[in-house]
Write a protein that binds this DNA or RNA. Structure first.
Lengths: 331, 331
DNA sequence: CTGTTAGCGCGTTCAC
DNA sequence: GTGAACGCGCTAACAG
């Protein structure tokens, strides 16, 4: 019984060839005579040899691993992104090293810099503003970023938040809503895009918009903010939430307060998480195609790693999903 | 401008010392004279030197990475496990390499064997039955498994599914339910434990139990199975679902069919996913402490890696969470 | 106690 | 098809 795993030299000795031959055979880099190949097969099988990925990585500089950094893996938007990214990665024999940054944004830079040395490339979803991201240029690994960038020459995958928000607002406008509230989350870089899309639509129609700001994009927060939004003197007749999670919490608290959705007010969100379809009433939302975004980002990153040219910005089109939480107003 | 990253030899040359000195200093293995340390600090800063983790791993055999294999990262039960495991890992400077196996159970063995060579240890959540897991003994890396094991000497972390199921059944019994249905998922290893706990309680009380089997543990499946369960000649007055996801789908379809929960029937699930609290009515469930299970598994694995002795089985106590989806029957 | 020399680990790759 | 150097950080053995 050997104490440690067999090395390429053990195989070479057993098959009576050189280590170079073993290496090339294993990697399919070269064909050899039938005798030699048979001897190699037998030696490999007998010893149960498997290439040491660490040694291989050190030499080739490639780890077959991609780093994926998200804000909160418990948020279905991010778990779907991970799902899509992971699927594409697996198809191409890559693994995914996950980073969940939310708790410690302060250490994000350090974490990503460390990560960059262990992977072949990274996909990053971050709250950082573009002007705080200059250091990323110093990471000499392929990178794909979620969200649009103005200056930095980093490939990105972005949903059209402005357009999606416009669609939602337009939908509410056409239903006859007159007083709309936005329950936002200004710490996010996407909040302003969404707010911009909403404003563009409503300002043109002269519809009033009230903005409330949440501290985190969660169901609990939607619940907490609800009373302040709906129990004021001028109750809105429609509420647009920063995401579906906030909308779900908001809807639940509305029910507790005795308000009926969509009769008393319409509610909409962003993301199209699966749960929005299973609450009552089902939630009207904008499908931002989370899983596809994850898959697209991974596809793009792997293309960069292979040295292919890629578009700087890939935009994923959002899609309005109409459900029972929105309803037309009379007159 | 150097083309590639600085190595320990560059630092040694710049500081006029040997590479051994640099290595020891960086790892805090030895102190040196103030002059030497100052020179080292300066050289490191000037070159922007950072240890190459691949080279380090190859020598030490440690990667500071833990593999985590789950069945479906979009299921909140698993994303919570990941959340907990990831938090503990980060605290101890470990990274998490994620594997999402659901789509390809056939390649699970191969995937995990490959994974085992790139990590310091693995945490595995699998549908495999114990008799198919013999090969795991051949993985000479520390391992923690979710769920109880009889023969294999692998440390495990398990929820008490039998006990949790008993609690749910007992709760329904005490509410006066007489005809109970179990909407199960027999492909899971935990299904039989849950069914066992339910049976133990109901058989003793002479309460009738009907069992239906789902093909996957999802909301869509709960929705699909609903009509077959509630539109038969003998409608159950309570339904226990394999997990909260199935329960959510089931409840939605009940509403579509014109049935009112909990008036017409009570519904319960397993896991206590966050969404169960935000549907209407809120879902009574058993909290299996997903996040804590993830954290516990990681803590345990890191202890094994440090060479400490650990309990073979760590049991996490479930907790009944009463909400509005269950209600007492009259008479 | 401070610091160096020399060689290891293991798959890859160049020159022959 | 081979031999040997290579990459890069670690560490045993040893010298000052």
């Amino acid at each position: 019984m050997k104490s440690s795993a067999p090395t390429i030299r053990d195989v070479a000795a057993a098959a009576q060839v050189s280590t170079a031959t073993v290496s090339k055979y294993i990697n399919g880099a070269q064909r050899f005579s039938p005798k030699v190949e048979a001897a190699l097969d037998e030696a490999i099988a007998a010893l149960g040899y498997r290439s040491n990925p660490l040694a291989k990585s050190m030499i080739t500089g490639r780890t077959n691993t991609i780093g994926l950094s998200v804000l909160d893996i418990n948020n279905p938007h991010f778990s779907s992104i991970l799902k899509g990214a992971n699927r594409v990665a697996h198809e191409q024999e890559y693994s995914v090293l996950l980073v969940d940054t939310e708790e410690t944004p302060s250490r994000e830079r350090r974490t990503l810099e460390d990560l960059s040395r262990r992977v072949d490339g990274m996909i990053v979803f971050s709250r950082m503003r573009e002007h705080e991201m200059g250091w990323m240029a110093g990471i000499d690994k392929p990178l794909v970023f979620f969200g649009s960038l103005n200056e930095l020459a980093i490939p990105t995958v972005a949903s059209d938040d402005h357009g999606g928000a416009f669609m939602l607002a337009q939908h509410l406008r056409m239903l006859g809503h007159k007083r709309i509230a936005y329950l936002g989350f200004s710490r996010s870089r996407r909040d302003e895009e969404r707010l911009g899309g909403i404003r563009e639509c409503l300002d043109a129609a002269g519809i009033e918009l009230t903005v409330h700001d949440g501290e985190n994009p969660s169901m609990v927060e939607g619940e907490r903010l609800c009373s302040g939004v709906v129990l004021g003197p001028q109750r809105p007749d429609a509420v647009i939430c920063y995401n579906d999670l906030m909308a779900l919490g908001f809807m639940k608290e509305c029910a507790n307060l005795g308000l009926s959705i969509p009769r008393d007010l319409s509610v909409v969100g962003f993301d199209n998480i699966a749960y929005g379809k299973y609450v009552t009433p089902a939630l009207t939302t904008v499908d931002l195609q989370s899983e596809r975004m994850g898959a697209t980002a991974m596809t793009k990153l792997l293309a960069v790693i292979r040295g292919e040219q890629v578009e700087r910005l890939t935009k994923v089109a959002p899609q309005l999903v109409l459900r029972a939480s929105t309803q037309a107003r009379k007159g």
